[in-house]
Simulated assay, not measured.
Amino acid sequence: MTTSDKTRWGLILVIWAAGLGAAAQYGKISVVFDRMAELYPLAGGSIGFTVSLVGLLGILFGVVAGMFVAAFGYRRTLVWALWTGAVMSALQALHLPFPVFLGTRVIEGLSHLGLVVAGPTLIAQVSTEKTRGLAMTLWSTFFAVAFTLLAWLGLPLVAKFGVLSLFGAHAAIMAGLAVLLGQALRNVPVPERQAVPSLAKLPALHWRIYRSPWLVAPAAGWLFYTACFVAILTVIPPFIDENIRGFVLGVMPLASIAVSMTLGVYLLRFVRAVRLVQTGFALCAMIGVWLMLVPGSPLACIAVAGAMGLVQGGSFAMVPQLNETAADRARSSGAMAQAGNLGNTIGTPLMVTVLSTAGYAGMLSTVVVLFSAGFLVHAVLAIRRRF
């Protein structure tokens, strides 16, 4: 793949905005989750799937998504993923029957997967080697920034016009980005399309990745991180004082970004990424106990988000540290995408179910167990790498 001889920052910002739209496919439900029962009062515990079903296709195809996108074309994938997301959000704004709404969330998962695979590839394409690190760091913030914007701008919109207005606004933004990028990407050189991968080879590819303590390590911890991140942002808000809820929800993702890009980057100069991730998980577990003892504590909420930033930054740094070749790094990153979608999919329904059956303390106990499991899985894989 040839790359640009000049960084196209304007285009990079628009592609990053598409990433914000992809993150909002999770976040637009998370930030109003406590009000989804108003739309679907008979849904019961199944309401948790309104958040998590976006990750279904990512679970099935995360490892090989890059190969499918290469076959369909990066520019085409990005634009059509935006259009698909726009149509699904527009349908959701019509207050669909609950089963149909869940169906749109599954289709929205296809849009999400296309955006998170094609977006960073195209950003790398339109940046120079000197600026690529900064450009990719910008891309890595899309999830947390989207949650912040939804908390600070989306919640006031919902307060004034209702939940469905947020879905309509998301549809309009995605459609606008599709039109803009459809034009802006026309002159961006991309590699020739590749052959569609054989489905018969998928089981062997997955087996090779998941049996390797080097390839699977970033994904193994990422599973527990993602099972908690969206779920915490979704389930905790009703326990935060309503007067400062929007502020806290906006600060939590920013705290994660700030810690990851400052303290996390600094510590990586002295410790291996695995150790940094384990430190993050240990801190998260301890802060989870604090949050259990002081329900909805704003300081504890922000602190746990900050500690999760160590896990976030360390997990991505772990990929090149444990895997030397580009091919292995791609496989390891694909496994991270798959594990991340699995964590996002099971996290919220799990927390909602535990909350409804065991209460707040039971839910926070589950969070602490998941964070502890993230610490332990890296300890086990580290032992395997020694023998």
Score class of each variant (00 low, 15 high):
Gly264Thr: 01
Gly85Phe: 00
Ala71Met: 09
Val126Ser: 04
Ala307Ile: 07
Phe239Trp: 13
Asp241Phe: 12
Leu82Ser: 12
Trp83Arg: 13
Leu276Ala: 06
Arg8Asn: 15
Ser111His: 05
Ala37Phe: 04
Pro97Thr: 10
Leu370Ile: 14
Phe98Glu: 05
Val368Cys: 11
Leu13Val: 12
Leu254Ala: 08
Val319Trp: 01
Gly114Val: 03
Ile173Gln: 13
Asp34Tyr: 07
Gln194Cys: 04
Pro41Glu: 09
Ala379Ile: 12
Gly176Arg: 09
Ala159Glu: 14
Met318Cys: 06
Glu192Lys: 15
Met336His: 04
Thr366Glu: 03
Phe101Met: 15
Ala330Gly: 10
Trp16Val: 02
Leu355Ile: 06
Ala373His: 06
Val289Asn: 01
Glu242Asn: 13
Ala86Ile: 03
Val63Glu: 07
Tyr360Asn: 07
Tyr26Ala: 10
Pro213Ser: 07
Ser4Pro: 12
Gly168Ile: 03
Ala339His: 04
Gly314Gln: 08
Ala144Lys: 02
Ala144Met: 12
Ala24Lys: 00
Leu157His: 11
Leu56Thr: 15
Ala17Lys: 01
Gly296Thr: 09
Ser297Met: 06
Leu78Pro: 14
Val179Arg: 05
His95Lys: 14
Ala178Thr: 07
Met36Arg: 03
Thr262Cys: 11
Gln338Asn: 00
Ala337Lys: 01
Met363Ile: 01
Ile302Cys: 11
Ser165Ile: 02
Arg272Phe: 02
Pro41His: 11
Val265Arg: 15
Ala373Gln: 01
Thr226Met: 13
Val311Cys: 15
Ile244Gln: 09
Thr366His: 03
Met351Ser: 14
Glu38Lys: 00
Ala71Gln: 07
Glu129Lys: 13
Pro218Gln: 03
Leu57Val: 15
Phe143Cys: 11
Thr148Glu: 06
Ala178Met: 12
Gly133Asp: 02
Leu322Trp: 01
Met363Ser: 02
Val14Lys: 11
Met88Cys: 12
Val145Ile: 15
Glu129His: 13
Ala159Cys: 03
Ile240Met: 05
Pro197Tyr: 06
Gly45Arg: 08
Ala330Cys: 01
Pro218Glu: 06
Arg384Lys: 10
Gly264Asp: 02
Trp152Gln: 05
Leu155Thr: 07
Thr234Leu: 02
Leu177Arg: 10
Tyr225Leu: 11
Val126Pro: 04
Gly264Gln: 03
Tyr210His: 14
Ser111Phe: 03
Arg386Cys: 00
Leu149Phe: 06
Glu129Thr: 14
Arg329Lys: 14
Tyr210Arg: 11
Leu381Gly: 02
Ala175Tyr: 05
Leu215Lys: 09
Thr148Gln: 05
Ser256Asp: 09
Ala178Asp: 03
Val289Phe: 09
Gly221Gln: 08
Leu350His: 02
Leu164Phe: 02
Arg272Leu: 10
Thr141Trp: 11
Gly58His: 07
Trp290Leu: 05
Val31Gln: 12
Leu263Pro: 00
Gly66Lys: 01
Pro213Ile: 01
Ser52Tyr: 05
Ser46Glu: 03
Leu355Pro: 08
Ala144Glu: 09
